[in-house]
């Protein structure tokens, strides 16, 4: 196995919500990179496929005390306990798997037979079902990338941390007789596109990667940590009410303490 030569990685993200402006670039960068289909009416957000979705949070106070915070939500690539991510454990087809070498939760559409157990199991609504075959307007199929297969009707899809980019970067490194990648060689499409530099991507175990330090900030939190999903997306916010929206704390409990680190 080629992986024997490399140390195991845990790829993850730190998203600075103070910098995120909710502009939607990450969403479109993801769609364009991963051949995400679109339909005539995309206003039913339960059926609109967006591997990366930007949620709008508000503090619920009346005008003019209202505050808004945007929260980009890719797949959390949960590690759970020793790789027992909520979705992976329920998949009867091994169409989704936790990769111990990269920490990436894979999704193999051709194995998926559409039972949608994983969607029910995912607490982050990060998975989407193809209710219809994807149809591109005449001529627009030309814009599809050969690096990611378009999915057929009846299967589940989700964010893969642009795994094909990892493979391409590795291929290139191998060709140059290298075994390890530099931090900048493997970056997801959303990270690259973000005009505000709000997203940082890298190996959470590598001390030289920016994410390693950022995740230790006292402003860091993860979503629904109390469920034990052990997600690999960290968020930073200087605002207490935003950190609380991560839903990890008992009333009166202080925020800013990540319970278990990678």
């Amino acid at each position: 196995m080629t992986q024997e030569h490399r140390k195991a990685k845990k790829f993850g993200m730190v998203i600075d919500l103070d910098k995120c402006t909710g502009c939607g670039s990450c969403m479109v960068a993801c769609m364009a990179e991963n051949n995400v289909p679109f339909r005539e009416n995309e206003t039913d957000k339960l059926k609109s496929i967006t591997w990366m979705r930007v949620y709008k949070l508000t503090n619920g106070k009346p005008y003019p005390k209202e505050e808004i915070c945007y929260l980009p939500r890719p797949c959390m690539h949960c590690e759970g306990h020793k790789g027992h991510s909520p979705c992976v454990t329920v998949c009867p087809a091994i169409a989704t798997d936790y990769d111990m070498d990269t920490g990436i939760v894979s999704q193999i559409p051709t194995r998926c037979f559409g039972c949608r157990y994983c969607m029910a199991a995912c607490p982050y609504h990060a998975r989407y079902f193809n209710w219809w075959d994807p149809v591109w307007p005449e001529g627009m199929e030309k814009s599809l990338s050969p690096n990611v297969s378009p999915r057929m009707r009846g299967v589940v899809e989700k964010c893969t941390f642009c795994f094909h980019r990892y493979q391409l970067a590795l291929d290139k490194a191998y060709a140059e007789e290298r075994r390890e990648l530099e931090e900048h060689e493997y970056q997801t499409s959303c990270t690259q596109a973000c005009p505000s530099d709000a997203i940082t991507f890298g190996d959470l175990l590598n001390k030289n990667h920016a994410v390693y330090k950022l995740k230790k900030s006292t402003n860091a939190f993860r979503l629904l940590e109390k469920l034990g999903t052990n997600p690999k997306i960290y968020y930073l916010s200087s605002r207490e009410w935003v950190r609380r929206a991560g839903d990890n704390y008992r009333p009166g409990e202080g925020t800013g303490k990540i319970k278990s680190h990678h």
């Binding site: 670039s25 479109v28 960068a29 030309k142 690259q192 005009p195 505000s196």
Partner: peptide
């Protein structure tokens, strides 16, 4: 075939960043 449009690194205006409209250029 044009398959994706990305922000240009090192450009004095956007240095790698790009907006959602620019990304939809294809």
């Amino acid at each position: 075939r044009v398959i994706k449009i990305e922000g240009r690194k090192g450009h004095p205006v956007n240095d790698g960043g790009i907006c959602s409209l620019g990304l939809s250029g294809a």
